[in-house]
Design a binder for these strands. Sequence first.
DNA 1: TTTGTGTTTTTCATAATGTGAAAGCGGATT
DNA 2: AATCCGCTTTCACATTATGAAAAACACAAA
Lengths: 273, 273
Amino acid sequence: MDDLAKSARGRPKAWDDKRAQNTIKSLDRALEVLITLGEMQGGTLSEIAGAMDQSPATVYRVLTTFQGRGFVDFDEQTQVWHMGPAAFLTGSHFLRRTSLVERARPIMRDLMEATGETANLGIERDGKVLFLGQVETHATIRAFFPPGTASAMHASGIGKALLSRMDDARQRQVLAAGQLERFTDYTLTEPEAIISDLRDTKARGYAIDGEERNVGMRCIAAPVFNVFGEVVAGISVSGPTTRITTDRISDLAQPVMDAAQQLTKAIGGNYRP
Amino acid sequence: MDDLAKSARGRPKAWDDKRAQNTIKSLDRALEVLITLGEMQGGTLSEIAGAMDQSPATVYRVLTTFQGRGFVDFDEQTQVWHMGPAAFLTGSHFLRRTSLVERARPIMRDLMEATGETANLGIERDGKVLFLGQVETHATIRAFFPPGTASAMHASGIGKALLSRMDDARQRQVLAAGQLERFTDYTLTEPEAIISDLRDTKARGYAIDGEERNVGMRCIAAPVFNVFGEVVAGISVSGPTTRITTDRISDLAQPVMDAAQQLTKAIGGNYRP
DNA sequence: TTTGTGTTTTTCATAATGTGAAAGCGGATT
DNA sequence: AATCCGCTTTCACATTATGAAAAACACAAA
């Protein structure tokens, strides 16, 4: 299901109740139709009406109204309703507003609060991880990457999270471009070792940097996707091995993956499983 | 303004009348709010209500309902309403219908890598060029067309690539429909000048937009064909005149035409010589 | 602080309008 | 032809969207 559409759940109850009173029911139902249509990637009237068990008559009127504004198209041949250009055009005004960094900010703050560790945001640029921002932990001992730092992909949690979702060709390209510098005893420098680690990372859903870049520092990272399901960024928490023990990794992984997924949603992206 | 969203106007009257009966008025008004919000690129309650003179109370309820589904965001700080991620996500299902965009994605990425410039994909819709997607260059200075932008045909590389392969009747129709707005000193505003340019474009195999839309920006575009040999899309690279010099045009043209041809093949199209 | 001005929310009585059941319709399939 | 099945339309009904106005709020200026 489309969690995004139901994201209201995350709010305080009071808000929900309050909003419920000021909500236009018919409009809300109509939006449900539109969302369902999107999820189904198009469908016939009865399919749509069936999927959300509502009377066909109602769904029909909703669809024709959307059609009037170009929000949905109707293919007379196949009798199939589709998302229309106006929906795309209107929705894409969303992109014009704010950047990844701004949207990430509150999510990273929450992640930091939840885990107590510094949260980081990074993207790939020219074969390196570019750190775009961070929210620092309150703890005295902390990991610090000034935003703007460019770091090797193969020895970074975010880097590996990004790599794990790129296709083979790009993986090889990135790994070939840099020369897999060794930073610590734990750094993976053999392409095979890295590729194997990336496979694990993909399966796991998050990447682990276990002192591969800096001795005494661990990092857990998860990928963020754009609307096409392509990786565009990674989000991570990092801290000293004394706090991020191997035991704690699995505990931290969930919040990190949640944050990555939240950010994916906040930028209108699609998580690709 | 946003013609696309109002495209219902173009329909036969009979349809309009028929539809009017089965149209849900409140939903239609709500869509108007959403479209207005998009056009205004965000605004406060009173701005929005004022812009479409409706009672603030109604607009308020509409907005909160949209908000509940994530279709609009409300910035508590500034009291400004914006398009939300769910609108974008839902609307972008439009792209998935035609596999064009998905097929184009990897080709555009390669084109971007090969040329170092932002690659764009666009189609014609209602006499305008609708940008469906882009892959941005890594360079700091870059051309940026948010997907969803609708732009004038006569002052766009993709637009001219599309026009150059339409038959005379449609050319005239499109050129007559819009009123050939002038954007820069270089914009072609005389039908004769444009038609002559389109002839050259067709012979050349690619279109050149030399600062005709934005000063300081050039763009090189080539047409993409469907199985019947009809133009269905255009693919382009765009960037600052400082990087896309006149000397470089012929170098860039080949990769662009290659990409267009690849995409033509990828969608099972036939190149028409 | 208090007062004033311009918002945004909420309330409330009213009728406008969205609703589903069921009846028409039309194009497929037998 | 006859039958089926899904799309439209009709219709009577009460759900529910509506705007005016009042209340709450935010913020500036006195």
